[in-house]
């Protein structure tokens, strides 16, 4: 971790997201003048919850400007994160185009901060892992981290109401180096999905680094869930710090 002050400020702000819609975002900033790299945090499918905000603060404590837009704010209408996530699920999920617009707005906000060094990364968990890949193909970033994102490779199950399509075809447009962190026991994405994406990025000459953890399934970073796997999470965090340190601070 590059930051030693270990001091930060965090608050909920409002940004103009996709189509100019006002949405809430959680912004955490290290104290000091910087310059700091920035990280857009894409929350997981359970929503814009306490854990997602804790992750956002963790990046600030490590010396990064960090912002986590509430992708469920429109459907949530001020409800709690669990009710909002259920409403989004019932409505068919977050549309891809809207996701890109919201992430672009969050990235724009980070770049506008006077302490920004102009470099930006993006990281996402669960559904946010897939959305990280999407954002990194559609928008200019300096580094990306996909944490067990399903749906980059492979088609959704037939009864899935979500409007997402496989993203692997966007791989030529990947704008930055990609770190992938996966659970070997996960089914979505499965080890076969991970291997297919790995091979495609290698074929295209895209800078990437994938790690799959034995004994871990989906959501192994989530400290408040039974899926938490301490060894995988600790190693994963170490790789995240190394990855963002290399690409956002140099």
């Amino acid at each position: 971790m590059p930051h030693v002050a270990d001091a930060l400020t965090a608050e909920t702000i409002r940004i103009a997201g996709h189509d100019g819609d006002e949405i809430r975002a959680y912004l955490a900033q290290p104290t000091g003048d910087g310059p700091f790299g920035g990280v857009v945090v894409i929350h997981h499918m359970p929503g814009w919850d306490r854990w997602s905000k804790e992750v956002t603060r963790t990046f600030a404590a490590a010396g990064y400007l960090a912002i986590c837009p509430n992708l469920h704010d429109r459907e949530g209408k001020g409800a709690g994160p669990d009710d909002s996530a259920a409403a989004v699920r019932a409505a068919g999920g977050v549309p891809d185009g809207r996701l890109v617009g919201d992430v672009e707005a969050a990235a724009r906000h980070l770049r506008s901060l006077p302490s920004s060094n102009g470099k930006l990364g993006v990281i996402g968990y669960c559904s946010g892992g897939r959305q990280t890949f999407l954002a990194a193909c559609k928008l200019p970033f300096d580094a990306a981290v996909d944490c067990y994102g399903a749906g980059v490779v492979g088609t959704p199950p037939p009864q899935a109401p979500f409007r997402w399509e496989p993203l692997i075809g966007l791989s030529p447009d990947l704008s930055c180096p990609l770190l992938g962190l996966f659970g070997a026991e996960d089914r979505f994405p499965s080890p076969e999905h991970v291997a297919e994406l790995d091979a495609e990025l290698t074929r295209l000459g895209k800078v990437h680094e994938f790690h799959s953890y034995e004994g871990a399934g989906h959501a192994f970073f989530c400290v408040d869930r039974p899926s938490y796997r301490v060894e995988a999470a600790l190693d994963g965090w170490a790789r995240i710090w190394e990855w963002f340190g290399r690409h956002l601070n140099s």
Partner: peptide, 9 residues
């Protein structure tokens, strides 16, 4: 896993 599968009734 995230199954993403939802039955709506």
């Amino acid at each position: 896993m995230c199954t993403y599968q939802t039955e709506t009734v």
